[in-house]
Design a protein around this nucleic acid. Sequence first.
DNA 1: CATGAATGAGCATTCATTCAT
DNA 2: AATGAATGAATGCTCATTCAT
Lengths: 228, 228, 228, 228
Amino acid sequence: MSVVALAKIPRPSKAQRIDTIVESARKVFCASGFEKGSIVDIAKDAGIAEGTIYRYFDGKRSLLDEVLHRHYAVFFDDVQQTLPSIEGHSNRLRYLIRRTLLSISGDRGICGLITRDKRPLDNETPSLSQDLNRQIAVLMADEVKAGIKSRTFHCNTSPSIVCDMIGGGLELIAYSYMRTGKSIDVDKVTDSISLTFLSGIESSDPTTESLANLVERLEQTADRLDHS
Amino acid sequence: MSVVALAKIPRPSKAQRIDTIVESARKVFCASGFEKGSIVDIAKDAGIAEGTIYRYFDGKRSLLDEVLHRHYAVFFDDVQQTLPSIEGHSNRLRYLIRRTLLSISGDRGICGLITRDKRPLDNETPSLSQDLNRQIAVLMADEVKAGIKSRTFHCNTSPSIVCDMIGGGLELIAYSYMRTGKSIDVDKVTDSISLTFLSGIESSDPTTESLANLVERLEQTADRLDHS
Amino acid sequence: MSVVALAKIPRPSKAQRIDTIVESARKVFCASGFEKGSIVDIAKDAGIAEGTIYRYFDGKRSLLDEVLHRHYAVFFDDVQQTLPSIEGHSNRLRYLIRRTLLSISGDRGICGLITRDKRPLDNETPSLSQDLNRQIAVLMADEVKAGIKSRTFHCNTSPSIVCDMIGGGLELIAYSYMRTGKSIDVDKVTDSISLTFLSGIESSDPTTESLANLVERLEQTADRLDHS
Amino acid sequence: MSVVALAKIPRPSKAQRIDTIVESARKVFCASGFEKGSIVDIAKDAGIAEGTIYRYFDGKRSLLDEVLHRHYAVFFDDVQQTLPSIEGHSNRLRYLIRRTLLSISGDRGICGLITRDKRPLDNETPSLSQDLNRQIAVLMADEVKAGIKSRTFHCNTSPSIVCDMIGGGLELIAYSYMRTGKSIDVDKVTDSISLTFLSGIESSDPTTESLANLVERLEQTADRLDHS
DNA sequence: CATGAATGAGCATTCATTCAT
DNA sequence: AATGAATGAATGCTCATTCAT
C-alpha cells in the first residue's frame, strides 16, 4: 500500500461522516427503536465519539429526522417522476399502492422504525414520519377526489376513509412483514388491495350479475347461430 | 368509633387491591403513555406504596397488559354475545366495524394508549394490545372466509388483506380522533367503510356497459336471424 | 451490643438523612463551589446513592438553597432576638456589624461559598444568598434611616451608600479571610468599621483647632481680666 | 484584482490577531460570563478557528486574564498620570473613587464580568481581576496611610479597613448598577462616599460638640468683657 | 500558521426494581 | 402484607482541548 493510498482515507469528508452517522443511526434506531436506541450505541457503531455526532446534528431527534428524510426522499423522487406519466385514476392509485409496498418490502429495517415511532401525540415536535406518511395519504386522496370529479369513482364513500383503509391496510401488512419476515408478493397484494377498494368484495352486485347474465345469453345466441 | 366500623375497611381484598391498581395504571398510562407513565405516579394515584404493586404484578409491562386485557374483555364479551344473533356475513362485518368504532370513540384515553404503544417488536414481552387487535382481525377474517365459502363474497381478493384494510383504516381513524378530538360519526363511518369494501369505489365500468350494449345488439341480430 | 441497640441505627430517620445530605452538600459546595461541586461527590461524601438525593431535593439548586438557608437561619434567629434589646442606632449598627463578622469568622467554609456564588445576574432563579445578604443590608439601612429621623445621624449622605460601604467592606474582609485564612479580630474590626462610618477618618479640622485655641486664649484673657 | 491588493490583507499581524481574539473574548465573556461563554463562540465572533486561539493563549483562563488586563490598563494609565497632579490626600482619594465609578458606569459589560467572575479561590490560576482590584485598593490604602502620616487623617481606624469599605461599597454599587441598569450619578455618589468616610455620619461628634461649647463660652466671655 | 473535526470525560437527572423494616 | 427509602445504571448533551491535515 503506497503512502498516497494511505493519505487518501484518513479524514473522511463531511458528507461521508454524515453518511456514516446517519447509516449507524438508521441501524440502531431500526434495531432498538428511537427511545431505546442510544447515542452511545450509534457512536460506537459509527466508530466515532459521541460528541462528534453533535457536530453534525442538533440532537437525537434531528438524527431520526434525517434517517427518515433520506428514506422518504427516494420514495417521493420516484413518485413525482412517475405519477404524471400514468393515465387513469385507478391506475395511478394502483401505482401508489405498489410503490409503497415496494418501499416497505425493500427496507425491512426502517419500515419497523416507522411502524413503531409513528405516534407521538404529545411530543412537541412530531416525528417526520407522520408528515411523510401523511403526504402519501394526500397523494392518494387527491387521486380519489379527482376520480370522483371525473366520474371514474362514485361518491358513495368518503375519500379520506378510502385512503385510511388503503394506508392503514398497507401499514398492517408492513407490520406483519416486520414480525414474520415473510416476504411480500408485491404484485399479488397490489391486485388484492386494488380489487377490494375498486370493486368491493361482494360477488352479487347488480353490474356483475347482469354482466354474467348477458354473457350467458350471448353464449346461447351464438350457439343458436352456430346451429342454425 | 366502634370496632366493627374499623373492621369494615381495614384491608381491601386482594381483588379490590388489584382493581385499584389497574384502574390507576389505566389513568396514568392513558394520561402519559406507557414509557412516560411512572410506577410512582400509579402508586400515588392508587394511594399505595410502589412496592405493593410488585406484589401483584411482575412489573410495569404486566400492568399494561392487565389494563389492556380488561379493556378488550368488555369488547369481546359483547361481541361474543351479539355476533351469533346477526344474520349475513355483510351484516356481521358491519357489526364488527361499528362495535370497534364505538369502542374507540367511547374511551378516548385508552384508545390513545393503544394507538401509541402498539408496536413493541423487540421487547421481550410483546404488548397484549396487538394480540387483541389481532383477535378482532381474526373475527373479521373468519367472517370474510365464511362469506367466500357461501358465495356471498367473491374470491378475487385475500381475506387477510381485506381485514388489514378494515383494521388499518379503523386504526387511522382512531388516531385521527386522538389527535383532533373531533368526535366520530359512528354510523356514517361504518357505512362508508362497509360500502367501500363491499362494493368498491368504481362507477359501473364503461367497458361492462358497452359490453351489455354489444350483447344486446348481438341479441337483436340473433333474434332477427332467428326469425328470418 | 444488644439486638435492640443494633436495630436502632440501621435506617436513619428522614430528618437525619436530610441532615447528612445537606452537610455533605455544604462540604462539597464549600470546597468546590456550586458549579464545580457535583451531585456525585455529594452522594459519595454522604455515603449514599445519587438518586437518594433526589428523593429529598428537587435538584442541585434546591440543595444549595437549603445549605444557605440553614446557615442564615441561625444568624437571623440570633439577630431578631438580640436587636430589639439594644438601645441607640449606633449601637445597633455596631451589633449588626459584629454579628456578621462573627458569622463570617465562625464558618470559613460557607463564607467562601457565599462569597463566590453571590452573583447570578442572568440566572432565572437567583441564589438564596443574595436575598439573605440583602436582608442584612435592609436591617442596616433601616437603622441608618431611623438614625437620621431621630437626628442621631446627619443626612449629608445616602443610607443605601453607607450600607453598601459597610456591607461591601465586610464582604471584602470575608474574602480576605477566605484567601489568607488569617483569623479576624472581631472586636477590633468592628471598632474600626464603626469608627469610620460614624466619625470618619479626618482629624479634627485645623480650622476647628485654631478656633479652639483662639477661644482658649480669649478665655485666659477673660480670666485675667476678671481677676484683675 | 492586483497582487498588491491581495497582499495587503492576507495575513493580519500577530498583534492584530491577538487584538481581534481579545476583543471577541471580551464581547462573549461580557455577554455570557466566563463559565458559559464558550471558545467556539469567541472563535466564531473573531472569524477564526478555535485552534488558532490556542496558538496565542494557553487556555480559556488566559483569555479572560488578557481581557481584564486590557480593561484595567486604561484605568491605571489614567490614574498614574493624573494622581500626582492632585494635592491633598482627601482630594486624591476622592479622585480614585470618582475614577473607579466612571470606569464602572462607562463599561457596563465588563463591569458585569468582573462582578460575576471575581472569586476563584480554588482555581489553580486565580483570576487577574482580583489582583487589579487589589491594586486599586492599594492605591487607596497608600493614600490613607500617607494621610495618617501627615496628620490629615487620624489613626483610630485601620487603612485597610477603610479601603475595604470604599472598595466594597463601590463593588456593591456596581453590582446594583448591573442588575437595575439605572445609571449612576457619579458626582453624587462620589460625594456621598467621600463624606461618609471623611466625616462619618454622626451628627453630634465630640469635636463638633466641644466646638459648640467653646463658641458658647467665647460668647459668654465676650459678654463679660462687654459688661465689665 | 491556521484549521476545525474529533475527542471523551463530565454532569444532572430519571425511574423500575429491591428489600429492610 | 405493606411500606417507601434506597439503589445505581443509563441517558442526552456540553465543551475545552488536541492534532492531523
